[in-house]
């Protein structure tokens, strides 16, 4: 009887799970197989080559640095703005405006960053016209730089609206009376945030975070436009290995992508079990 009960609950999940399993599961299996076969032989050579490859090691560190930085800064700015502004952000038209950056592909935002912030970009021209810049070579290097400033700022520029849209409903729904309780008990603003807001936004925020993290780590367009020659993001390396030359480096491309996938999946499982525990705690505390 209990089993029936459980299957009844779970039935509506079947199409979604089945879909992901058939399409994505199979595709990942294929990618995995491609990474461990060379000319029909089973081998881990591709992984060995990767780990011995200096550009790959530099690249994975660089990618993680860029990805973590853009993810955390986007989340931070998004939370600060929403927290401060949620009352005004509820307006329908303001929401529509925040949606607008979501309409453009990341590539376009990257392109705008180049047109605005490169050494011969619009801001450099503006400073020159204002007499604050002698020549464009004196303008700071913000695009195609080796620290990933261009990549990071494009992602922040693009993801902050996303973060706002994701956590805005949580702030609007939040029971703001709890805040008064903490306040009357003499709690500081930080304590209000820590005890009332953080437990409620954390699950949503971590989900948004993992989506941004995964996207930035594996997307190709923005680093292609704004990245430096060395070190390259892992996505660019795998793209190059995938398409270039005589295709003999494909196993390496697949291996690199499998490694990236594993990093993302492990992070997300850890985060999900954390948030689920928290969710249960929150809902128990409320009832």
């Amino acid at each position: 009887m209990k089993w029936f009960k459980q299957t009844k609950y779970v039935w509506p999940l079947v199409p979604a799970v089945l879909f992901v399993f058939i399409f994505v599961g199979y595709a990942i299996m294929m990618a995995l197989l491609e990474s461990i076969t060379i000319n029909g032989q089973w081998t881990l050579d591709a992984y060995k080559q990767l780990l011995e490859n200096q550009s790959f090691r530099d690249s994975i560190l660089f990618s993680l640095k860029v990805t973590l930085t853009s993810t955390f800064i986007s989340l931070f700015i998004g939370v600060v703005i929403t927290r401060w502004m949620y009352y005004y952000l509820r307006n329908y038209w303001v929401k529509v405006l925040i949606w607008i950056p979501m309409l453009f592909p990341h590539f376009v935002w990257g392109y705008i960053v180049i047109l605005l912030f490169s050494q011969s970009g619009w801001f450099s021209g503006l400073l020159y016209e204002l007499g604050l810049l002698e020549d464009f070579t004196h303008f700071p290097v913000l695009t195609q730089d080796q620290h990933g400033i261009g990549i990071i700022s494009t992602y922040i520029f693009k993801e902050v609206p996303f973060v706002i849209l994701i956590i805005l409903p949580v702030y609007i729904q939040m029971n703001h009376q709890y805040k008064h309780v903490v306040q009357t008990l003499g709690g500081s603003k930080w304590e209000i945030f820590k005890t009332v807001e953080w437990p409620t936004i954390f699950p949503v925020l971590s989900e948004a975070g993992i989506i941004i993290f995964a996207f930035v780590l594996s997307a190709f367009e923005v680093p292609f436009l704004l990245g430096a020659t060395y070190p390259k993001m892992v996505s660019i390396l795998s793209y190059d290995w995938f398409f270039q030359g005589d295709w003999s480096q494909r196993p390496m491309a697949f291996a690199a992508m499998i490694i990236v996938t594993s990093i993302i999946v492990i992070c997300s499982i850890v985060l999900f079990s954390m948030t689920n525990r928290l969710r249960i705690r929150v809902s128990k505390g409320e009832r």
């Binding site: 180049i114 050494q119 436009l225």
Partner: peptide, 17 residues
């Protein structure tokens, strides 16, 4: 750093960099 594509090189040229 080097331009990643010819498009990028051409853009630098068109901007006078």
């Amino acid at each position: 750093t080097y331009p990643a594509s010819l498009t990028e090189l051409d853009r630098l040229y068109s901007q006078g960099e």
